[in-house]
Nucleic acid binder design. Structure first.
Lengths: 339, 339
DNA sequence: ATACGCTACTAAAACGTTTTAGTAGCGAAC
DNA sequence: GTTCGCTACTAAAACGTTTTAGTAGCGTAT
């Protein structure tokens, strides 16, 4: 209250040097500086308990040491780990993380504008991946000098944005092959929405693995959901009429829905049917029985996205695209088919 | 690239007015301004696509229109909704949300320093609520003029911080009374850690409700967990030997652990035992059967915390403490005891 | 003796706003 | 015809840094 704000000027006065000198020791530019001077400054800083003002610094340097993160669909199970991964990477790099959300294209646009006004150094999005989503405002931001990296968003080939993408297709293959390897032949699939790249690719993986195993693709063994619990439950109820011995569910909460349907039907897992889920492994880990799943490395995605953003600040022309591998976590819902 | 940065000065020049005038229209201070002038400025802004620079503004006004959120224990199921609630409140108020995490006291301190350096206008913490956690750095920040509001953190009576707290005790009572009302007498409790206020209060609620229902408190019907899945599983395994007909589990993932234990034991829920959980309702909603739970209004907590912070910026002397009510969500794991 | 180069600093501009303290112009009052 | 007050603006300082373009002082080479 009573005491004046302590600025670089107070420190300079206290140490009997110029502001530039203080600034230099703060920035570690002390190649040509008398040790004695440096120590005097350090002592003054310590004694006055000087805290540099980042906003003044940002104004002068035109960099804020802050990265913006825009999250679409916050109810998604993948959302928390992405945030955590991004925050971690930011912290390690000495950056701050400014968070915003977006439910739709319009609010995404508003969030991007907020980020631009706040002058974040780069932007990462984990967002809406529908086909029709438009990314021109992002490209604009990118070419205006703000690196943008999109996580799990479907983008045209010629986009200027860096990107992190999961190998959904390989994941779908992995899941399905695991079931085939156990000896299953009637393998059903609860697919994601057909208007989402994630849904499409996971399904392609499923079909590829079946073909590779010499199993014919039965349309009647495929049902489409929308990643919701209810849709998983509904789809499973329908599919059970076809008596599959295994099912690959293309989403984690859909898988929980399917489990509920099976419980309702009195079908024992994995005795009568095997089930593999897909998504955030923590989401289905605590179900009983613990659900075998394809692990989407989603915290990694957050971390990698920030790293790409950071790197792009150095070399804005070098667009990078990173494909993240999935892996199979075998738990308790998969077993060989009953004889 | 080619075009110069467009600042308030460019706008002023284009409109043939002074920078002050532009600033005035930006801030909506046009009481005494010729309509014609105002329109000219607006037109120039539009035409040049001028975006005000928030960091320059922050430097001048000493306010950043940003709130800092420090999250402890990001694996906690309560963490995502708090963030979402806080972000929502910030967005509505035209504020940004700067996110940081803290695993322990030391990293919390570092995060607070980061926030101070970045000059956030206020700080909200959802954090470590152990008894021994020290809050002096927070009090210091508060008295240095940065409002601090703590969510679900145990604080001394005379703290200067605003706070949001859940009524854990009432929640514990609610859960236990629900079971007693159904006719249960042998009601077990899987408690939270005895060194956490949350654990203690939930247990007090349990004991109060038993007493109110004229049921004696049996220490052998109480087991202590640490909010982890494994501890819930372990505790349930032990408690089952006492043959309770119901159990109140003081945490959501502990409850999932208890469900697993019961499944392992072949005990049917709710036929042979009723179970009530406590925490984020979404966490246990998709278990099968869907778990009856005490709903902690955790998104609300994030929202309210931001509101308190905002209000405290106006009247720094007025500390507020808000107690949030819990409610009972009856789902499928509770029923009258078997005859 | 002057010039030169080097070391260890410093003065002041710049970053893009807001805000304070005006002021020019003009009609009305005395 | 001054003075006054009002309207509609403006000039410039301030915010707290970084950075550019020096410069003072001193030893050395010519």
């Amino acid at each position: 209250m009573s005491n004046q704000r302590v600025t670089i000027r107070s420190v300079a006065d206290a140490a009997g040097v110029s502001m530039s000198t203080v600034s230099n020791v703060l920035s570690g530019r002390h190649e040509q500086m008398a040790v004695e001077t440096r120590e005097r400054v350090l002592a003054a800083i310590e004694q006055l308990n000087f805290q540099p003002n980042h906003v003044a610094r940002s104004l002068a340097t035109k960099r804020t040491a802050t990265i913006g993160l825009i999250m679409g669909d916050v109810t998604n199970s993948l959302y928390p780990p992405v945030t955590v991964g991004a925050e971690e990477a930011c912290r390690q790099a000495g950056y701050g993380l400014l968070l915003a959300t977006a439910e739709d294209s319009a609010s995404e646009r508003r969030s991007v504008e907020l980020m631009q006004a706040k002058r974040v150094d780069a932007l990462v999005l984990f967002a809406i991946s529908y086909f029709d989503v438009e990314s021109n405002h992002l490209s604009a931001a990118q070419s205006a000098g703000m690196p943008v990296v999109a996580i799990n968003r479907f983008l045209p080939e010629d986009t200027p944005l860096s990107a992190v993408w999961f190998d959904h297709q390989a994941g779908g293959e992995l899941a399905t092959r695991h079931l085939a390897d156990l000896g299953h032949r009637r393998i059903a699939h609860i697919a994601g929405p057909a208007n989402r790249m994630t849904g499409i690719q996971r399904r392609q993986g499923y079909e590829a693995a079946l073909t590779a195993a010499g199993i014919r693709i039965h349309p009647s063994l495929i049902a489409e959901g929308d990643y919701s619990f209810a849709s998983g439950e509904r789809a499973m109820l329908t599919l059970w009429q076809e008596r599959p011995t295994a099912v690959f569910v293309a989403g984690d909460v859909m898988a929980l829905g399917a489990m509920r349907a099976l419980a309702r039907l009195g079908v024992r897992v994995p005795d009568e049917i095997s089930l593999v889920a897909f998504g955030n492994p923590d989401c289905v880990r605590y179900a009983t029985p613990a659900i075998t799943t394809i692990d989407l490395p989603v915290a990694t995605a957050g971390r990698v996205a920030v790293e790409l953003a950071l790197r792009r600040m150095q070399r804005p022309e070098e667009k990078e695209v990173r494909l993240l591998e999935t892996s199979l976590l075998v738990r308790e819902t998969t077993a060989p088919p009953a004889a």
